[in-house]
Amino acid sequence: MSSSKDLPPFPSDVPTAPIARISLSDLLASKPPACASALEACRTHGFFYLDLTATTIGSSLLSASERLLQISHQVFDHELEYKTKHDLVKGVSLFGYKRAGTVKSTDPNLRPDTTEFFNVAKDHVHGVAASRSYPSEITENKALFQSFTKDAHEVGMLILGELAQQLGVEPKAFQDKNIFTKPSGDHCRLTHKYAHVSDRHAIGLPSHTDFGSITILFNWLGGLQIQSHDPAKAGEWEYVKPLPGCAVINLGDAMVTFTNGVLKSAKHRVVPAPGAQGDVDRYSVVYFVRPHNEALMETCEEFRHLGEGGRSRGSLSRRGGVLTAGSG
């Protein structure tokens, strides 16, 4: 597909998650209904749509995501031999190329995933740390990656600031854990999942939660699913239907740790897209905000009285006996 506009429509007869649609314009204006809706979404489903239209930064992100989509088509069209020259090194760094075929224990059927991706470090494109090798399609578009990561991080900080306000804690309580100019695991991810014309039971990515603070997703095809929040549908999976002009927002495990479980990082997975969309390769563009390396992975003081509700995982190191986010 040459453009997101060429895609078949999302079918109307599949179960979709009833997640909130919140206007970035309203969050920028700190309108109480929008801010309250964001908090409720992050305490329940852990996901919401962020309508980026009618704002300068939102329009910039939408335009950049479309350009990154085109770069994704180009970079994933290379032979595997070329892509693997830029392999990430598991256990050492999460930046670089991850090929399809990973098996995770979170998938009960132990199916190899069918998603490949490139993780492009925020630190590399902004000169916070020395870069590694990336395909030319990425290095030659450094300015685009710089603007996208900067804008996406700014939107993430806006959301975290509003959540702090709603929870009655210091406005920068969460923002100060995710400082853009400090070394961190923040990255832009370009993903590609092969179409599943013959195998509708294949898994794109198995069930998981994100490690970081907040995830900002741009996708054009179905396939993303989250577990239902309806008690009558406990354990059932529902599609998150892509909406034009919107990003999909979800929190990661770090925010569960910082708030002692008050905010949620919901389980999600990627499966073959429903209907005719399953016959098309799926691409997405994601920005992951992760706590900067020095950030202490501990519950904020205001939430410690709630008991042991938080959790943390990922690439962590210790400082004075306390876990820090460490390098990715």
Rank of each mutant, 00 (worst) to 15 (best):
S213V: 06
E116S: 01
T149V: 09
Y97D: 00
R304N: 07
T114P: 06
L39I: 04
I249C: 02
Q166M: 12
L39P: 05
P112D: 07
E66V: 10
T299C: 12
T44V: 10
D230P: 03
E298C: 06
E238F: 06
C188R: 07
L62C: 07
S265D: 10
A129T: 15
S72G: 15
D26L: 12
A36S: 13
Q175F: 07
G326E: 07
R318I: 12
F258N: 03
H201N: 15
V14H: 04
S3V: 08
P242L: 02
K122H: 15
S105D: 14
I138L: 11
G328I: 13
G161E: 04
G58R: 01
T191G: 10
G212L: 05
T139D: 11
A143M: 14
A164G: 06
P171I: 11
V14Y: 04
R99G: 02
K193D: 01
L27S: 05
V125T: 12
L224Q: 01
S72Y: 01
V155R: 05
A100H: 10
S60V: 13
D87N: 15
G185T: 08
L50N: 02
L296W: 12
G46M: 07
G314R: 08
A164N: 06
N293I: 12
I249K: 00
E137Y: 07
E81F: 01
P8C: 02
Q166G: 06
A202V: 01
M1Q: 09
E308R: 15
A152L: 07
L94N: 15
G204W: 00
A202I: 05
L62I: 11
E154Q: 11
H292A: 07
S184Q: 00
A234M: 13
Y194T: 14
K85P: 04
G307A: 13
E238D: 04
F174Y: 05
L158Y: 02
